[in-house]
Design a protein around this nucleic acid. Structure first.
Lengths: 227, 227
DNA sequence: GCTTGACAGATTGTCTGACAATCAGCGAGG
DNA sequence: CCTCGCTGATTGTCAGACAATCTGTCAAGC
């Protein structure tokens, strides 16, 4: 990055309609507008979005590849469901990857990344008390985004993003984090401190621990709902 | 699974045209018919496959999500290229995941899986001397398939499959394994033995080691070609 | 009453043809 | 030699169409 050049990153954001639709659907699923198991009928989506079937179908293929929707032959796509068993596997993998990301962040100690992590942590602390948890969630998401970028491995970043999308869906069904916010915050602080001090093992351990705790709460709620 | 019920799994294999096209393209890319960087023009693919643009485009979206092709806006899809840097990241992640898979296999010690692993290893040893390495590659692929299934984590399995597809592309460019076959075989035997004896740490270590060695050879060739 | 089979409706899977938007390369002009 | 505008190629997107297939229902038969 040059010091002199102004940021001319126009980045026509999402150029293609297909991408717009894709993001729309992704967030609709993530925010629970479309619930797991619900059918997504092409023509209805066409009417709701105002785009042709072509774009809808291509967007759905993408989401299918990401695992967010499941297409039943000649029946059409539904929002993917997850058994408690699968959710456990998801959290296992997430722990593995996020542990790796934490370790790499601690190893690299990129100042820009650390600054972002710290800023988002501050933001999280600031809004932790709000009734509306969407602020907290947004900050948390940004914290993770920084963590993933910081690991410097594009594949880890991509895969973890996929996993996080699916976790978000889970979160809707399991309505977790009642008073886990405080604990969660302190866990995240542990991660942050470890990364800042370059403690690779500590950062990895803290990340894994954080995921395991989150998993325990989520899986408990999920299993109860599944019974 | 019931003991009495016969296996009525008819499994009409790949129903939709789109899936057929997808697999065709995937293997065409994997086998080097389409080379990295090459443009994939929709209308040409239509003629070559005899299907409509609809199906082609949807298949391409899937491959794009897997990272096998990259779509340049208003220019169309090309077979994805990889820098040495990215390849190194890919191998890093592959080591992480495959280490996990090896560990889990050793932990679970599923007899069916172990039998498959051993059978494929035998097959590999048998065909190692052939000039045509496609037999060896096929057996190796099956060995990995068993390893991935054996880890019991569907997400790990899915992600590793994606990574392996991209490694296959790399292999085309870097023409590795001259006389690495013997070493490679003995490394795989180490993995197998560790899994059979339930040595979790050993299995993980052996897997990671195997990937690192493979990575070293591949990256060396790649960097030389890139210069 | 319960099972079987046929029918109708809904929805996907796929093709065709079309058109505007956009990009890459080329040649004219300075 | 560099810049500008044109032309051709290709994608992005739409609308309409049709067969294949699934689901649910309802009548017929045991």
């Amino acid at each position: 990055m040059s010091d002199t050049a102004p940021d001319l990153n126009v980045s026509r954001e999402a150029t293609s309609l297909r991408l717009l639709v894709e993001n729309r659907l992704r967030s609709a699923i993530g925010s629970g507008v479309f619930k797991p198991g619900q059918r997504l009928i092409e023509r209805e989506l066409c009417e709701q979005t105002g785009v042709g079937r072509t774009s809808i179908r291509e967007a759905l293929r993408q989401l299918e590849a990401e695992g967010l929707v499941t297409t039943i032959p000649h029946r059409g796509p539904i929002v993917s469901t997850m058994t408690a068993e699968e959710a456990a596997q998801l959290y296992d993998l997430r722990g593995l990857l996020e542990g790796y990301a934490g370790r790499e962040c601690a190893k690299r100690r990129d100042p820009a990344i650390i600054a972002r992590l710290r800023a988002e942590f501050k933001q999280m602390s600031a809004v932790a008390g709000h009734d509306d948890r969407s602020d907290l969630l947004a900050a948390k998401t940004k914290f993770y985004a920084a963590l993933l970028e910081g690991c410097g491995n594009i594949f880890v970043e991509r895969f973890l993003n996929m996993l996080l999308n699916r976790v978000t869906v889970l979160r809707m069904t399991s309505m977790t984090q009642a008073n886990r916010i405080d604990k969660s915050l302190s866990e995240i602080e542990t991660i942050l401190v470890a990364i800042e001090s370059g403690d690779e093992d500590g950062a990895e351990r803290a990340c894994v621990q954080h995921i395991q705790n989150a998993a325990a709460v989520a899986l408990d709620a999920l299993r109860r709902a599944e019974s």
